[in-house]
């Protein structure tokens, strides 16, 4: 368990600064609710393609050596 904790701590130390930089580096312009119509369009929304992305990740997990990219865990099955 301590080895796992060390691994998590090491990975967090490596990746967290990059995430923090991105968070702080993004713009501060205020976009009001009535200006967000285009962002909810199916061709712009992240949610509209959530299931498609999860399905593709599941299929490519079985064909490539890496995983992730959707902010969620995939199933643990060993299928094709």
């Amino acid at each position: 368990m301590s080895a796992s904790r060390t691994t998590i701590a090491r990975a967090t130390r490596r990746l967290a600064p990059a995430l923090l930089l991105l968070l702080l580096g993004t713009g501060c312009a205020q976009v009001r609710a009535y200006q967000r119509e285009r962002l909810t369009d199916p061709i712009m929304s992240f949610d509209a393609v959530k299931k498609d992305a999860a399905r593709r990740t599941h299929a490519l997990d079985a064909r490539e050596g890496s995983t992730g990219g959707n902010g969620g865990a995939g199933g643990g099955c060993a299928c094709n």
Partner: peptide, 23 residues
């Protein structure tokens, strides 16, 4: 475990970034 941030940059631009860990 994962942490994801989604940020509206302009009325036509949206950014998402995150990190994931699997043991």
């Amino acid at each position: 475990g994962n942490a994801v941030a989604t940020r509206i940059l302009t009325p036509g631009t949206i950014l998402r970034f995150g990190l994931e860990l699997n043991l």
